[in-house]
Design a protein around this nucleic acid. Structure first.
Length: 254
DNA sequence: ATGTCTTATATAATAAGA
């Protein structure tokens, strides 16, 4: 099962790129974030013609998550207690694997109200995993975590530690979440630093490779030994009218 | 380094979120 995650930053704008990328990369399952449309506007027909079932949960203007799958989607759950109503989490079951598309809050700036919301979101997500039971559940939680796990995942760690995405408090929240028993799929197979999934539009970060690896695919203990490949596909970030994020992939031999 | 992209309101230009 080839799983991908991509924050598309508006599916309305990025749909042609998504369809092109699906035909190129041929993933089995794709988690999307920031579709920025209500569920009724989701392009189920175009996605269907590309060979994918879809589960989507959107809202007006902001956020919005979806899961696309070539394989049957068996269950769909929107959100979790404590999420405070924003369309940021969609849980599916595909081939017996819990596949979660997550769009964690940005946090704005340390000390802000949105930073506190990000903290609450992470705590609620951990509580949600605890409610799933043991980490022997085959589970892949994929998405835009808006936190880079380690210094090697950030182009300027000292600067980033003062802002959102690599602040010491955030590292603690992410660690508490993943201490449930989650493994960063890329790091199971590749230790190279300087690999990013997001580059700021404002600073022209992509051309200078000044980015952060804030999009990840985390797998539970049950899937850890089955991860055979994991990589970041930087090509779509170079396309015209690109999202500020690029797809992240993991191959899991079920 | 307040820069760039997206959406909403509204139908030109600004605000907000990221």
């Amino acid at each position: 099962m080839l799983i991908a995650t991509w924050n598309v930053n508006s599916l309305r704008v990025r749909l042609p790129q998504l369809l092109d990328w699906l035909s190129m990369a041929k993933p089995d399952v794709v988690c999307l974030q920031e579709i920025k449309m209500v569920t009724d506007d989701f392009p189920f027909d175009a996605i269907g013609e590309a060979g994918y079932e879809a589960a989507a949960w959107g809202q007006k203007t902001y956020n919005g998550v979806a899961v696309l799958s070539k394989l049957p989607i068996e269950e769909v759950v929107q959100g979790f207690p404590g999420e405070e109503g924003q369309a940021r989490l969609l849980e599916t079951v595909i081939e017996g694997v819990h596949v979660i598309s997550a769009y964690c809050p940005n946090g704005e700036t340390p000390g802000s109200e949105k930073f506190q919301f990000k903290k609450r979101f992470y705590a609620a997500l951990r509580a949600h995993l605890d409610g799933l039971g043991k980490n022997s559940t085959p589970l892949a939680i994929c998405g835009d975590f808006n936190i880079a796990p380690e210094a090697r995942d950030v182009w300027d760690p000292l600067k980033a530690a003062k802002t959102c995405g690599f602040h010491p408090d955030e590292i603690k929240w992410l660690k508490h979440l993943t201490d449930w028993g989650l493994h960063d799929s890329l790091r199971l197979v590749d230790q190279q630093g300087g690999q990013y999934s997001w580059w700021d539009y404002r600073t022209g970060g992509f051309s200078k490779n000044q980015g952060m690896r804030i999009d990840q695919i985390w797998v539970s203990d049950a899937l850890k030994p089955k991860v055979t490949k994991a990589w970041i596909d930087t090509e779509p970030r170079g396309w015209d009218r690109a999202s500020d994020h690029t797809p992240v992939l993991a191959e899991i031999k079920l």
